[in-house]
Amino acid sequence: MLLIRCPYCEETLPEMEFTYAGEAHIVRPENPSDMSDEAWRDFLFIRSNVKGPHFERWRHSHGCARFFNAVRDTVSDRFLTTYKAGEPRPDLASLLSAAGQSESEK
């Protein structure tokens, strides 16, 4: 069971309060009807499925009920950061160097 920091509650809390909600930063197009079949297919189904830092969404479903974004390493299962929905993608390089620092302190 992981610990997840909710960017709205500003608390680090047990995973049991949260629900995973898929890859992050996939924006529903303004006018879906204008999209080609291929573009719409990609929006619906094509996901990055990364091994390593993954931008993803969670919902604090048994808490403040907000959807938010996170960067989680799919290999170590560690969260590099969480941030509010609508905020821009954080810079991965600086997240990784910060994480590396805290690892080496162990």
């Binding site: 629900t19 909600a21 924006v27 529903r28 969404r57 919902r59 009920a65 959807f67 929905a85």
Partner: peptide, 13 residues
């Protein structure tokens, strides 16, 4: 409810 909240919070805030 989860699906509706999802659209409301993230697509149409």
């Amino acid at each position: 409810l989860n699906m509706m909240e999802d659209y409301l919070q993230t697509e149409w805030p």
